[in-house]
């Protein structure tokens, strides 16, 4: 251990090996997967909404990767089947997430398809759930005296409604909701689809 160059080369060789195993080989395997049958590309509005989702940092509280029923009751909660690699074909950047301060959103479009519901919830989550710790997003909305034609007016319980005014969604809120409503991967996954099946071996399903 007294030479710089061999030490560096060996260190880099080890990292190269790790990169091969963790990045290149899984990459090759995942890239050979076609999109899951039933998956469609995002529309323009949905992509704009996805950008809002990314820039507001929704991923820090919401995962998009339901676990298998062998592992956790995600499916019983209505969060959808265990996701597979090909469900994310059109996702960039990925928003898998590693935290569930809030529920999984992979299939929120199937579970909560109502645009009006999402508007209320984004403007003030506590108007619906008194226990919710989700931030309110008032800056995605504007308060007007009167709604103009074509405006999406947010339905609010009296407590949260500004007096004598209406709350109207800004385009960013509408795009975000379009994205959330597009999140529906409830179509079946092909048997050969790629995912971590490490919990499946427990024989009898949980």
């Amino acid at each position: 251990m007294n030479r710089v160059i061999p030490l560096g080369i060996l260190a880099l060789a080890i990292l190269a090996f790790a990169t091969l195993m963790l990045v290149i080989l899984p990459g090759i395997q995942i890239r050979t997967e076609a999109p899951t049958p039933g998956l469609r590309p995002y529309s323009e509005a949905e992509l704009r909404g996805r950008a809002v989702y990314v820039s507001e940092g929704c991923v820090y509280c919401h995962s998009q990767q339901p676990r298998s029923l062998d592992q956790a009751p995600d499916g019983e909660r209505g969060w959808g089947r265990a996701s597979v690699a090909s469900d994310y074909f059109y996702d960039q950047p990925h928003q898998l997430g590693t935290m569930r301060t809030g529920p999984d959103l992979q299939n929120v479009g199937a579970r909560l398809p109502s645009e009006a519901w999402h508007m209320t919830h984004l403007y003030q989550p506590r108007a619906l759930y008194d226990w919710s710790v989700m931030p309110a997003y008032p800056y995605l909305f504007e308060v007007k005296d009167k709604a103009a034609p074509g405006d999406v007016v947010v339905a609010l319980p009296e407590r949260y409604a500004p007096e004598g005014k209406v709350v109207v969604a800004k385009p960013r809120a509408r795009d975000l909701v379009a994205y959330l409503r597009s999140l529906d991967r409830t179509f079946p996954a092909p048997p050969t689809a790629v995912r971590d099946d490490g919990y499946s071996e427990q024989g009898e399903p949980r």
Binding site: L22, Q65, R195, G198
Partner: peptide
Amino acid sequence: SQVGIHHLIGGPVPTWVVTL
């Protein structure tokens, strides 16, 4: 150098890389 994918246990990545 090879532990990173334990952040995706039970996720939509190949079983073998998670196990690794």
